[in-house]
C-alpha cells in the first residue's frame, strides 16, 4: 500500500533517516537525564540524610547505651547443690576457670599461665600442697575468692555469683594432686548457712551517658583559692587544680604533716609548685596557717 506513494529506495532512505533521528534523540535523552544533572550537581554537597543515633541494647552498636534496669535480689541457693561437686557444677567451674584463672594459674593449675610472668608473689600452684595462704579447703578457697589475697595480684572475685564461685572452688580443688586434709565441719556448716540465708543483690543499671550526666551534675564547684596571702601565691602554680586538690585531700586542715605529705606526693600535677617539695617544716607551717585561715 505504501509503495503507491514511495519507491523502495525512497522508503529505505526514509527509514534510515528516521533511524538517525531516533539515535540522535536517544543520545540527547541520555545527555539530558544523566550527564547534565550530573555536571550540575558535581560540587554540591550530598543531601544530609538523618541517621538515627546508635543506641545500645535499645538499638545499635554502642555497648554503653544499654537500657536502665532495676536491681533485684536473687533468692538464696540450696547449699546441697553447691557444697559438693556435681557434673553440672564442675563443667561450669571449669569454664569459668579457663576464662578467669588460667591466664595466671595455668590451664593445669601449675601457676604457669602466660600472665604469670613477672608476678610477685608468683601465682599459686594448685597442684602443690604447701604454701597456701588461706588453705586448700572449700571454705578457705571461697574466702580467697571473696577477699582476694592482699599484697598480691590476686584481687577479689566477689562479682561472680556465689554459685559460680563455689563452682570455681570445686574446679580448683579438682586440680590438686595431693591428699586433702579433712575439712573443718564447723566452717563448712557456716558456709552452708551463708548460702541458705543470704541472697544476692544485683545492682541497678543506668546507661553510662546517664551516669556521666549525673556525676557531672552532682559535682560541686569548689571554692576559689584565696591568693592574697604571699605564702599561698608562692606555693600555688594552678589555682583551680590546687583548690580541687585541697577540697579532696582528707585531714589537711588538722595537721601540717598531713598537708605536707599529701601535697608532696601529688607533685607535680596537683596544682602546687614543685618548689614546695623543698619546703622546710617552718615554711609548711606558714603555708598551712595561710590556707586554714582565709
Amino acid at each position: 500500500m505504501i509503495e503507491r506513494y514511495l519507491s523502495p529506495s525512497e522508503l529505505r532512505r526514509l527509514l534510515s533517516a528516521l533511524l538517525v533521528v531516533a539515535l540522535f534523540l536517544c543520545i540527547l535523552t541520555l545527555f539530558a537525564f544523566l550527564i547534565v544533572p550530573g555536571t550540575r550537581n558535581a560540587n554540591a554537597p550530598a543531601a544530609e540524610v538523618p541517621v538515627a543515633a546508635p543506641q545500645g541494647q535499645s538499638g545499635w552498636l554502642d555497648p554503653t547505651a544499654y537500657l536502665a534496669e532495676k536491681g533485684r535480689t536473687v533468692p538464696p541457693i540450696d547449699p546441697r547443690t553447691v557444697m559438693s561437686p556435681n557434673p553440672e557444677l564442675m563443667a561450669r567451674g571449669k569454664a569459668i576457670y579457663v576464662q578467669t584463672c588460667a591466664t595466671c594459674h595455668g590451664a593445669e593449675g601449675q601457676g604457669d599461665g602466660p600472665g604469670a610472668k613477672g608476678l610477685n608473689p608468683a601465682p599459686r600452684r594448685f597442684t602443690q600442697k604447701e604454701g597456701w595462704k588461706n588453705g586448700p579447703g572449700i571454705p578457705e578457697i571461697f574466702q580467697t575468692l571473696e577477699k582476694g589475697v592482699p599484697g598480691s595480684s590476686m584481687v577479689s572475685y566477689n562479682y561472680l555469683s556465689k554459685r559460680d564461685r563455689m563452682a570455681l572452688v570445686h574446679a580448683v580443688q579438682s586440680l590438686g594432686r595431693f591428699a586433702r586434709a579433712q575439712e573443718d565441719p564447723k566452717a563448712l556448716e557456716g558456709l552452708a548457712r551463708l548460702f541458705a540465708t543470704a541472697g544476692e543483690t544485683i545492682p541497678n543499671r543506668v546507661p553510662v551517658a546517664k551516669a556521666l550526666t549525673l556525676i557531672a551534675k552532682e559535682s560541686q564547684p569548689v571554692a576559689r583559692l584565696d591568693l592574697r596571702d604571699p605564702a599561698v601565691r608562692a606555693a600555688v602554680l594552678d589555682p583551680e587544680r590546687a583548690a580541687q586538690t585541697l577540697a579532696l585531700l582528707p585531714g589537711w586542715r588538722q595537721s601540717v604533716e598531713r598537708l605536707a605529705s599529701g601535697l608532696s606526693q601529688g607533685l607535680p600535677g596537683n596544682g602546687f609548685s614543685p618548689m614546695v617539695a623543698t619546703y622546710s617544716r617552718e615554711e609548711w607551717g606558714v603555708l598551712h596557717r595561710a590556707l586554714v585561715t582565709p
Partner: peptide, 16 residues
C-alpha cells in the same frame, strides 16, 4: 562513671 552506671542508686533510676 562506669561504676556508677552499673551500681546505680535507686534515685538514679527514677530520674531516667
Amino acid at each position: 562513671v562506669l561504676q556508677r552506671a552499673q551500681n546505680a542508686k535507686d534515685s538514679d533510676l527514677e530520674e531516667t
